[in-house]
Design a protein around this nucleic acid. Structure first.
Lengths: 127, 127
DNA sequence: ACTTGACCTTCCCGTGACTGGAACCCCTAT
DNA sequence: ATAGGGGTTCCAGTCACGGGAAGGTCAAGT
């Protein structure tokens, strides 16, 4: 299977797939014409990666998860730890963004937003 | 005032201040020894930038906000528009992260996390 | 006068996870 | 023969800095 079809089937841009090969996450075979030749197992891996990335896991997390996925004697505890750590990170980001939102929406609602120069947003940013 | 003191007073790393000069956000004067010489107005600008960045505004937003801040004939509507757009962006990010959190926490709580290989997290990522 | 150490300078590379684009090769259909 | 729609590699750029090297400067202590 050529990269275009894999891209369609996984929803990953071809560029991304090549990048994943570059950094060793997938290793498709090569045809005589130097085209990449993907097997079903490669497609599954890429779909897995797409899902993991979609949940915000870093590439290195993805690499670890992929290794565990392929290790039939893995301990689910190892997987869970990675996921839990990531969950904590996500929650931290949410908290940070919510704090920004709170401040920002206060400022926005305090601002008339008309032609006049008086602006509580700028005051807030300055002070 | 030298960069170190400015760094302390604004909470911005010296590296960041130099970077802001590089991209034209501040233009401190220079002493004879080639040291940067910051005036109070530079410090205020940098504090403004620190606050804006702390609210997640991009550098380009910051540049625009700074320009408006210094323009006494600005329309507060222009400021408000930038802030509102940014608020929308933040809310989008929050929504995305909350979706991740929901899926991820479902997977994490479905996973025993012990020595056994059976793992709903990996199943979730695969399927 | 000399040295130490803290400060400052510029410059260049690295980050994460790609994306865009150039320049070129390959395959199929007309 | 040509046109198009694949594919290939490689290089540069993104964003907002951070790390670290190599060196200049300043104030204090010996």
């Amino acid at each position: 299977m050529n990269i275009g079809e894999v891209s369609e089937r996984t929803g990953l841009p071809a560029k991304t797939i090549r990048y994943y090969e570059d950094i060793g996450l997938v290793t498709p075979q090569r045809a005589a014409n130097s085209y990449r030749e993907f097997r079903e197992s490669d497609v599954h891996k890429l779909a897995f990666l797409g899902n993991a990335r979609g949940l915000g896991f870093s590439i290195e997390d993805c690499r670890a998860l992929l290794t565990l996925w392929e290790d039939r004697s893995r301990a689910s505890g190892d997987v869970r730890q990675i996921a839990k750590d990531h969950l904590v990170e996500i929650e931290g980001k949410i908290a940070g963004l919510q704090a920004m939102r709170a401040t920002l929406s206060d400022l926005v609602s305090a601002c008339a937003g008309d032609d006049r120069p008086d602006c509580p947003i700028l005051k807030g940013l300055a002070g």
